[in-house]
């Protein structure tokens, strides 16, 4: 299969999943695909749900404020003397200002309340709208794989299931992956074993090893036998072991994995492991230490790089 060179459009990660969600002001349809037009009515009236909730909260507050202003005006209208008018005007203005001030203080909380109500009022529809988005994204699979991936990436902030994760992994398999790409790994880890995911992990060990963290090490350990069954399984596992030698903590936590694939590590990764073991001789455990020494004796005993003391930091 010939891989496709791609340049992903910039992706905005969000802290809260609802920040990906927009709603049509006209027909109340939800969407998360970042489109300009409403997928249901076609109008350009999509706004972020937070903005919609803020408008709802503001509208309700304005109504309260208008009622207060109205009562104040009635008081002025019913005044008999100028003094009464001035008194009613001043008192009314103070009370309206006080109410406005309190409203301003609680604006964020009232917006949150309105947002939760908006999301909860029609849950079935919200679910249907998100699954319609998913279908829309998927419908581009044959014609535009990059677009499909980008849309699924947006949706995966909201839809958290293994199917959408696997679809993204499967799409990534079609692309030429590069160091400068905005790639992720942990959000794509699934519960079960999948060879495409194992392969993706293997690719990342070559170009973005900093993405390999605890949950990936755990995944690889859980499915080590299955990965070994792959044609390039040993290389994938060696790549993961090579990623573990980034940090002393990883070497300590996954010493078994590192030990089993230490003989397959390229020179720079093995050198790093060798130095970690040398600097922490009592912490690394006997089996790992002896395996590292065995490989050193076998392959690198006369290598000048192994003779110089390390001048590098603890994280590579």
């Amino acid at each position: 299969m010939k891989k496709i060179p791609v340049h992903f459009r910039p992706h905005q990660p969000v802290k809260y999943s609802y920040q990906k969600l927009t709603i049509c002001k006209s027909c109340q349809t939800f969407t998360a695909l970042g489109n300009q037009q409403c997928p249901a009515c076609g109008k350009s009236s999509l706004v972020p749900v937070e903005q919609h909730a803020a408008s709802t909260a503001k509208r309700s507050m304005h109504t309260s404020l208008l009622i207060a202003v109205f009562i104040g005006l009635v008081a002025i209208f019913l005044s008999h003397t100028l003094l009464q008018m001035v008194l009613c005007g001043a008192a009314g203005l103070s009370l309206v200002t006080l109410l406005w001030f309190v409203q301003r203080q609680v604006m964020a909380q009232e917006t949150n309340r309105a947002l939760l109500a908006l999301l909860q009022q029609d849950q079935e529809r919200l679910g249907q709208d998100m699954y319609r988005d998913w279908e829309t994204a998927f419908s581009n699979w044959d014609s535009d794989k990059q677009l499909t991936y980008e849309l699924l990436r947006e949706l995966s902030a909201l839809l958290r299931n293994d199917t959408i994760r696997l679809q993204q992994v499967a799409l990534l398999h079609y692309f030429v992956l590069r160091k400068d790409m905005d790639l992720v790994l942990e959000p794509l880890l699934i519960t079960n074993y999948d060879p495409l995911l194992a392969d993706y992990i293997g690719e990342l060990t070559k170009i973005k090893r900093d993405l390999i963290k605890d949950s990936t090490f755990q995944y690889v350990l859980n499915y080590e036998l299955e990965i070994l069954g792959l044609e390039n399984g040993q290389d994938i596992l060696a790549g993961v072991a090579g990623a573990a030698v980034r940090m002393k903590r990883y070497v300590l936590s996954y010493s078994g994995l590192v030990r089993r694939y230490a003989h397959k590590l390229p020179k720079d990764r093995f050198l790093r492991l060798y130095r970690i073991v040398q600097q922490n001789p009592h912490e690394m455990g006997e089996r790992l230490t002896s395996e590292v020494h065995r490989i050193y004796q076998e392959k690198y005993q006369w290598d000048p790089d192994f003779q110089e003391p390390s001048t590098r930091g603890s994280l590579i």
């Binding site: 203080q105 609680v106 949150n112 309340r113 947002l115 939760l116 999301l119 839809l159």
Partner: peptide, 27 residues
């Protein structure tokens, strides 16, 4: 009205509550 707003501000959902609620609705 001011008392109403002021006293119910403590029971308002946080952004994290809304996030959790949305993810539960969808997943």
């Amino acid at each position: 009205r001011a008392g109403f707003y002021w006293f119910r501000r403590n029971s308002a959902p946080t952004q994290q509550d809304i996030d959790n609620s949305l993810l539960t609705i969808l997943n």
